[in-house]
């Protein structure tokens, strides 16, 4: 019991250890409750041809990525070359979810805009952006009002979901994908999901 005076020191060190660990966590990365749950079903108009619809069920049997993007999203520009490179290497199909293309843009006043007009503008803007930066997507769909985004628990752009052949979400990446993220986390996850079935 001679070392009793050291007890507060060890209590302090324990607390400091916890706090130091806390500093390494990112409070902006909120874990998704949708992991290993069926992806929310949706049917949305395609950017390449708004008359055509794309449904979640269309990708059944494939392991694929759903990437949330928008032309007004700055971080998407940072991420985009990584996706273009991924598409060139033909490793995993990526579907784009164009999120609130018009009404999400802070520079634009979309109040009172008719849905048809908004859709037309969204298509035009999305195509122009893909033309400028390259199109890594198998196809992109328009989430005009962000409702599908809410179903997926999207709270920022970009976000990327890994969906397996049964339509289950297996992984969510929050924020722009870096080449390191892709090589060290996402592609190994894709392999793992593919092996699992």
């Amino acid at each position: 019991m001679k070392a009793k005076f050291l007890v507060p020191l060890f209590l302090f060190l324990g607390l400091a250890g916890f706090l130091a660990f806390g500093l390494t966590l990112n409070p902006r990365e909120v874990p998704s409750p949708l992991i290993d749950k069926p992806a929310p079903a949706f049917t949305l108009a395609r950017v390449d041809d708004p008359a055509q619809q794309f449904s979640l069920a269309d990708m059944r049997g494939k392991v694929w990525l759903l990437n949330v993007w928008a032309s007004w999203c700055v971080a998407c520009r940072q991420e985009h070359p990584v996706l273009v490179d991924l598409a060139r290497r033909n490793l995993v199909p990526v579907v784009g979810l164009n999120y609130k293309e018009v009404r999400g843009d802070g520079q634009l006043d979309a109040r009172g805009m008719a849905l048809d007009a908004e859709t037309g503008l969204a298509v035009e803007r999305a195509r122009r952006w893909l033309g400028e930066h390259g199109n890594p997507y198998v196809l992109s769909v328009l989430d005009i009002d962000g409702r599908v985004g809410i179903d997926f628990g999207v709270y920022g752009v970009p976000e990327t979901f890994l969906i397996d052949g049964n339509g289950k979400i297996r992984y969510k990446h929050i924020g722009p994908i870096t080449p390191e993220n892709l090589q060290q986390v996402i592609l190994p996850k894709v392999e793992e999901v593919r092996r699992a079935g």
């Binding site: 902006r28 990365e29 999203c73 700055v74 971080a75 940072q78 802070g106 709270y155 752009v157 722009p176």
Partner: peptide
């Protein structure tokens, strides 16, 4: 997480 992932609320910041 880079600081520029504020894409969802440019208006929020300005407001």
């Amino acid at each position: 997480m880079p600081a520029d992932r504020i894409s969802l609320h440019p208006r929020g910041l300005r407001a």
